[in-house]
Design a protein around this nucleic acid. Structure first.
Length: 435
RNA sequence: CGGGGUGUAGUAUACCGGUAGUACAUCUGCUUUGGGAGCAGACAGACCGAGUUCAAUUCUCGGCACCCCGACCA
């Protein structure tokens, strides 16, 4: 799209009261706007990133056999009383209407998905399966903080799986560990993200979190570099300060942020709703559940924390708002820069390459500074200089490498920008085809 | 929810018990055009309430909001 038509604008300075790197950069670059503490609007550029993250997750959940649904935010009080969480969940938003009827604003959706599934599932033949959604969650954080990392309203992908026995649940749960690792890999934070043992599980005694190492994190984890797993501080003493996989006590302590987690719920929620199935003998059996969450905004914010530099945002290829930032630089002796840029822009669009064209009547310095701030992977400059050589100038946002390339080389390098998806192989668990 | 800090134009800030100045942004004109330009002009501001005072944006109290630390949590 043409940058001159973006209704949002980048700013030279970040809001004075923001300390969090992700908030400073995202607000300055015009990706998000803060409505109130912990509540953010995603602006056109930010939403493109968020949607790219969502699509990665959607592709991976579908490959893991997930079926996408969309449940409401407004939940009847009765469902939450059934599980006891109307009283026990401190950060539950409760709203009442003019007739006094009380509702919960959903912080998670077990109370909705279980009664839903109960209507359709009654036989061992219906199992297993999983359903997921992308949904705004509401949690009454006493203290929202760290920019978009800890909000009161945020978008979460929550998936729920349903199984006939523990073996089946366990194998699906194991599979999801791999699926999650791939999501974070594709989002560009795979190298720094660790499968982390945490409290709260049932059959394995543990739940598993995905923790990304960054100073902006709120958790302390103990990493075993041999096994490439970590342990959350909250349970490290239970484990005798040792790696749960190899038993090593040489663990590296890091600060990290939780970008996802998976739980084996077993019958925690199916029992109160009496969610059962009939087995081959016609006997009534409890359905076992797993749940799997990823906070989209938190992934986005974590990427900013981990990859952003002193010049601004830096987006991994797969989630960047655009693949190419096309920057035209005008000069006194207009050598046909506009015409040439327009031609390139049209060709990029024709080839389906997402391009942001800085067509504003601004000076070079401002355009370059802003291009760095926006963090689009590849910058392509058209100016009198480049035209004189019959070439284009490219700059890699990550490495800073600048080169003069001809048209063919240009499309070559754009291709390599887009090629990351092909690295993802076929699904080894469900047999679903590669992307 | 406990502790601390901060509220001045769209943004960042300055000064002051006598109603506010600067920069960027925006608008007009001219110049400029490869790393956040220059000149001239224009628009635009004291979180809310109470108190003290001849006079409050300034001092006091209360409220609200935001940020940070802690507790809690995706």
């Amino acid at each position: 799209m043409r940058q001159s038509q973006l209704f949002t604008k980048a700013r030279k300075e970040a809001p004075a009261d923001e300390v969090a790197k992700n908030a400073k950069l995202l607000i300055r670059a015009g990706f998000v706007d803060k409505l109130q503490a912990g509540v953010y609007t995603y602006l056109p550029l930010g939403l493109r990133v968020l949607k790219n993250i969502e699509n990665i997750i959607r592709e991976e959940m579908n490959r893991a056999g997930g079926q996408e649904i969309l449940m409401p935010s407004l939940h009847p009080k009765e469902n939450w009383q059934t599980t006891g969480r109307w009283e026990t969940m401190d950060d539950l938003y409760k709203v009442s209407d003019s007739s006094g009827r009380e509702n919960a604003l959903g912080p998670t959706h077990e109370e909705v998905v279980v009664p839903l599934v109960k209507q359709f599932v009654s036989s061992y033949r219906d199992l297993p399966f999983s359903a997921y959604q992308f949904q705004n969650k509401f949690r009454m954080e006493l203290r929202a903080k760290s920019g978009i990392l800890r909000g009161r309203e945020f978008i979460m992908k929550d998936m729920y799986s349903f199984h006939r026995d523990e073996t089946d649940l366990a194998s699906y749960y194991e599979m999801m560990k791999g699926v999650y690792a791939r999501v974070f890999e594709r989002a560009g934070i795979g190298e720094r993200t660790y499968l982390t043992y945490a409290s709260g599980g049932s059959f394995s005694k543990y739940s598993h979190e995905f923790q990304t190492v960054t100073p902006a994190g709120e958790d302390t984890i103990y990493i075993c570099d041999n096994c490439r797993v970590a342990v959350n501080k909250e349970i490290i003493e239970d484990l005798n300060n040792a790696c749960p996989v190899c038993g090593s006590k040489e663990l590296r302590v890091e600060t990290a942020i939780e970008v996802g987690n998976i739980f084996d719920l077993k019958t925690r929620f199916s029992a109160p709703f009496k969610l059962t199935y009939k087995d081959e003998e016609g006997a009534e059996q409890p359905i076992l559940m797993g749940c799997y969450g990823i906070g989209l905004g938190r992934v986005l914010g974590t990427v900013v924390e981990v990859l952003g530099d002193e010049k601004g945002l830096v987006w991994p290829r797969e989630i960047a708002p655009f693949a190419v930032h096309l920057v035209e630089i005008f000069s006194a002796d207009d050598a046909g820069v506009r015409v040439e840029t327009q031609m390139l822009y049209d060709e990029l669009l024709l080839k389906g390459i997402e391009v942001l064209w800085d067509d504003r009547d601004a000076r070079a310095g401002e355009k370059f500074a802003e291009s760095d701030l926006l963090g689009i992977p590849l910058r392509v400059v058209v100016s009198a200089k480049t035209l004189a050589q019959g070439k284009f100038e490219t700059k890699d946002r990550v490495t800073g490498e600048v080169s003069m390339v001809d048209r063919e080389e240009l499309f070559q390098s754009i291709k390599s920008v887009k090629s990351i998806k092909s690295k993802v192989g076929p699904d080894s668990y469900t047999g679903e085809p590669a992307l």
